[in-house]
Design a protein around this nucleic acid. Structure first.
Lengths: 225, 225
DNA sequence: TTTAAAAGATAGCATTACTATCATAGATAA
DNA sequence: TTATCTATGATAGTAATGCTATCTTTTAAA
């Protein structure tokens, strides 16, 4: 039996549910490819339509604009990652081990596991690194937040915050440390590959070193005493 | 005698030096105001021209496009901040005190000190928080980096990294910790004000708490042993 | 006083970001 | 079976954006 993962998405993000139709799934699939290749700024619904072999108007029937489409795929990623975390930390009792696992998941390039046919998680991970913060670094962040568009990110942050508290119930900044881990897992990766002198990983360009850095940062902060 | 601060800017950033003419200084001044008000996405050279009372073509004589203008004002900020740091940590001998001063400078809303007539540092600080990472989170980051556009950020990172090494010469990740301090000083501020559940500062929304968090994070990481 | 540089005025053009309308193919329900 | 509903396709159009070009006028330096 082939398992297929379904992420429950916020209905306000789209006009028509892209998961329900062939065209919809193509929109997700090809937008991930195009944003990965050309970046979000150069990405347009016209180019996407051409890539799919449909018309611009066709895309607009699913998404109001490219910003909402970006939020959609980023939110999908956070949902997917939270699932990965709950799956991979299942049966792990030591919260320190759990947190290490989380850091590793955040900082490691994922492989496309084929469990989601129209989403390439590997490309999506790269998009989250380079374009992820553009989802909320806007003037509409307040409006978007009212629609709960960032709930998957917040949920993930809460999950990680709780693991941090399991490690040390007296630690005072579990949420902020959680966002620090998430953002730095991505920024250190971006810097390592694009502006290496901003990091200490320019020589080897190895994700494993980012993990060591984050482990050091996190566990010196939360250790009791 | 009135002191006036001059930041040496990379000549590749502009076609005509905006500091040398009235129109040029107006471009800087009004673009800071407009980007602050409406965000970088909604900012156009047309609107800027109208705001100043000149024409679109006039702006294009100074800056090739709005992305280079953004890099310009962000780079200006980093240059200005490095000056503030060297000024305010002058005569401070204890590297721990120095680093605390740096964290405070990064995380505190600056006041417009009037030393730079056409730059409002207070607005600029807000822009760096909301728009700063858009300067490098692009597909052209490699090209822009070849032009040394991010040198001011790198220099700042190196300065902070050196202070970290003064605190503990054996600490292994001075650069990455420096970028973590810089980015988190801004991201925690943005989150606190816009997506507060991502932080532990939602209740009071006080910058002082961000400083406490960063101090805790940094000094538990670099303390010897 | 001449001359060069900067700014103003205006035009134009390709692309972007949409909205609207009408036709058609396939599935579904009466 | 026929009616009808839904998704898609095809096409058009429009305002705004992101430029480039040219020509004239003002300002400032030699």
């Amino acid at each position: 039996m082939k398992l297929q993962l379904q992420i429950k998405m916020n209905e306000d993000l789209f006009l028509r549910n892209p998961e329900h139709t062939e065209l919809g799934r193509n929109i997700i699939k090809h937008s991930i490819q195009l944003i990965f290749q050309n970046g979000f700024e150069a990405f347009t619904f016209k180019k996407l339509a051409e890539d799919i072999g449909t018309t611009e108007a066709g895309i607009y029937r699913y998404f109001e604009n490219k910003h909402l489409l970006l939020i959609y795929i980023i939110a999908w990623y956070w949902g997917w990652l939270e699932y990965q975390i709950s799956f991979q930390t299942n049966n792990v009792t030591d919260p320190v081990d759990k947190l290490k696992k989380v850091i590793k998941l955040l900082a490691t390039t994922v492989e496309d596991d084929g469990k989601t046919i129209y989403v390439n998680e590997s490309l999506l991970h790269q998009i989250v690194i380079s374009e992820g913060s553009k989802a909320y670094l806007t003037k509409q962040v307040g409006e978007d937040n009212k629609h709960q568009f960032f709930k998957p990110y917040k949920d993930l942050c809460a999950v990680i915050g709780d693991i941090i508290l399991e490690c040390n119930p007296k630690y005072k900044y579990p949420r902020s440390l959680a966002t620090t881990i998430i953002e730095m897992a991505h920024f250190q990766n971006f810097f390592m590959n694009n502006l290496p002198s901003l990091t200490d990983f320019g020589k080897n360009k190895a994700e494993s070193e980012i993990i060591l850095f984050l482990n050091d940062l996190v566990f010196s902060s939360i250790k009791k005493g």
